[in-house]
Design a protein around this nucleic acid. Sequence first.
DNA 1: TCCAAGATTTTGACATGTCGAAATCATAGT
DNA 2: ACTATGATTTCGACATGTCAAAATCTTGGA
Lengths: 222, 222
Amino acid sequence: MTTSTVEDYLKTILLAEEAQPGSLVATGRIAAALQVVPGTATSMVKTLAESGLVTHEPYNGVRLTEAGRRLAAHVLRRHRLVELFLVEVMGLDWSEVHQEAERLEHVISERLLERMDEMLGRPEVDPHGDPIPGPEGGVAAPAGPIWDLAAAPLGRRLRVTRVLDQESQFLQLAQELGLVPGTEVVAERRPEGSDLVELTRGDRRFSLGLAAAGKIRVEPVE
Amino acid sequence: MTTSTVEDYLKTILLAEEAQPGSLVATGRIAAALQVVPGTATSMVKTLAESGLVTHEPYNGVRLTEAGRRLAAHVLRRHRLVELFLVEVMGLDWSEVHQEAERLEHVISERLLERMDEMLGRPEVDPHGDPIPGPEGGVAAPAGPIWDLAAAPLGRRLRVTRVLDQESQFLQLAQELGLVPGTEVVAERRPEGSDLVELTRGDRRFSLGLAAAGKIRVEPVE
DNA sequence: TCCAAGATTTTGACATGTCGAAATCATAGT
DNA sequence: ACTATGATTTCGACATGTCAAAATCTTGGA
């Protein structure tokens, strides 16, 4: 049986690999993400390597094996289906489901997971727009260009597709501004040196710092 | 933070106290219920005693303190609300929810628990008829006589109120026979020395061994 | 009363996952 | 080409929860 600690490490490594495709994941990044000291991450990585879930190049980094990737994708599937379930069925706020899912993802049976998936209509994304891996671990590839509000062209109609931050504080802000997956916005201007972008949503105007804007993925409407 | 191991021990002790009100709980019973060797239960009991959750009379047994009882009741509340939720909302079979709840009970937040309670209409019993402790730990006291099918008077209309076994095999059998909380049966005869009771439910007749019959709680109808 | 059988506790050991601190490695900048 | 800096690894220690086996206690029956 894989412990929930192992599941957490694998999930973290998968997310880091997706953030930087092709490169090895540094043990330091794993340690930071899981809030443990670097030595702890190293020793756990060695354990994972002995179990054949990752390959470890000492002093260099780590990469999931096929078995590790499969397991990690399955944890992520549970996490994201649970998040969507908590929002859609239980009526919890999207800013508070991450933590809950963080614990539930380790104890949900296949059977219960299947029921959730069925109730939700085989969804492809969670409340934050993050793709939900299928039962076999694959994710639906996004079509079209990948923009965010810090880089998307000005003056075009854009639809929010994804919010890349799980902090409840940021999510509450995004919700207040209406920057949730599905809503439409236009990036009007990025004044030189201002480090922010001016947006309109319907007839509301507001601004967002570029760091925050970079966490809001969008796609062109039509 | 109380670990889920501690929660399991407390819950086990609470159930054992309820089964034999007034008497101390033997460490051996705890060990058997939790599938650990006796020495393990002893050392855990000592830990619980140091935390002020139980009082321990060495070689004699253990009893929950007020703090321990409150915590245990809360675990039981989570367990039973989750069971009911899984049956009512998720459509799982009552014979398979116990194991699932056994894990979920340790990771459900207060918030999610409250949502479940609300969705279910503040229920008082779980799918097996077991009472659900309130948020403060109290349980609704059953009114009237407490009978089971091994002892209930013959020839009277009886309503099943509770099934005292969580084994999925037994629960499946009970379901096939229609011996689930709410249904009506009559105990017709208990032939001398036969070790069984003959029952009717509607126009169906069947028999049940006394050991099994003793696990089916009933109350008189009107 | 005394003892044997059964239950309980004690003891020493182990697995897991963590930390702090020392040792080691990689590499950017001179 | 060297070195200082930052990242990584190693090492020893600890907490939790478990087991196996030895020691201890309780108690019913001769």
